[in-house]
Design a protein around this nucleic acid. Structure first.
Lengths: 106, 106
DNA sequence: CACACATATTAGCAATTGCTAATATGATAA
DNA sequence: TTATCATATTAGCAATTGCTAATATGTGTG
C-alpha cells in the first residue's frame, strides 16, 4: 500500500471535524435525502447545510445527484459507512477502557 | 449498541482534525516515543507538540507513561491503530472511485 | 540543596472556520 | 415567458483554533 499524502488525508479528515457535518453524515447514512430534508432533519440553516454538503462532497465522503429541482445526497459507499460505524465502536471501546482502567481512585 | 452522544463523538473526532495531531499519531503508531522524540520526528515546536499531545490524550486516542524525566506516549490500543489504517484504506478507495467514475470527460 | 533537563502551562496574537443574511443560479410549471 | 421553489454562492462578521515565546512544574543528579 502506497503511503497516503498527509495533506490529502487532512482534506479527507476535515469532513469529520465539524458537528454539523457529522450530523449530516449520520442523517444520510441509511438513505439519500434532499438538501431540504437534511435541513429539516438537523433543524439547520439552508445556506449553512449547503456549504457543509459542498465540503463533504469535496472530501469525497458523499455524492449528490440531481433529480428535477431536488438534489439528493448520500454517503459515497459502504466503506465510508463502515468508517462511520467504526467511530462508534472505537469510541465505546475507549470509554470502557477509561472507565475500567483509569478511575480506580474515586 | 447504544447511540453515541454527538458531543462526545465530536470531542473524539477532534483528535483527527489537525495535521500535527495526525502526524503525531502516525509517528507513534508503531511504538511509543518520548515528547522530545516526537518533536524531533515532526520537526516541531516543543510547546506546540505538548499541547497537541494533551489534546490527543483528552480525546482518548493516546496514553502517556512517565519514565524518569521522560514521558512516553503511545496510541491507546489496537482498535485505534485499526481506525488509523482504515483512514488510508477508505481514502484510497475514494480516490480510485473518483478516478474511475467521475473523470470520464477529459 | 542547586542545577540541568524534559515536559507542561499560559498569554497573546494570527489564521482559520463557521455562521447568518442576502443574493444568484437553475429547474419546473403555469 | 414569468413565477416559484430548491439549492448554491457570496460577503462580512463572530468564534474557534493553532502557533510562538515565555514561564512554570517536575524529575533526576551532583
Amino acid at each position: 500500500m502506497i503511503k497516503v499524502d498527509i495533506d490529502t488525508k487532512m482534506k479527507f479528515l476535515h469532513g469529520f471535524s465539524n458537528k454539523t457535518r457529522v450530523q449530516i453524515l449520520e442523517s444520510i447514512i441509511e438513505d439519500e435525502k434532499t438538501v431540504s430534508e437534511i435541513v429539516d432533519d438537523l433543524n439547520g440553516n439552508q445556506s449553512n447545510i449547503s456549504q457543509h454538503l459542498t465540503c463533504l462532497k469535496g472530501c469525497g465522503l458523499i455524492v449528490g445527484r440531481q433529480d428535477g429541482k431536488y438534489v439528493y445526497y448520500r454517503v459515497r459507499n459502504q466503506l465510508v459507512r463502515d468508517l462511520l460505524s467504526m467511530f462508534d465502536v472505537v469510541l465505546e471501546d475507549i470509554q470502557n477502557d477509561i472507565a475500567c482502567c483509569e478511575n480506580h481512585i474515586d
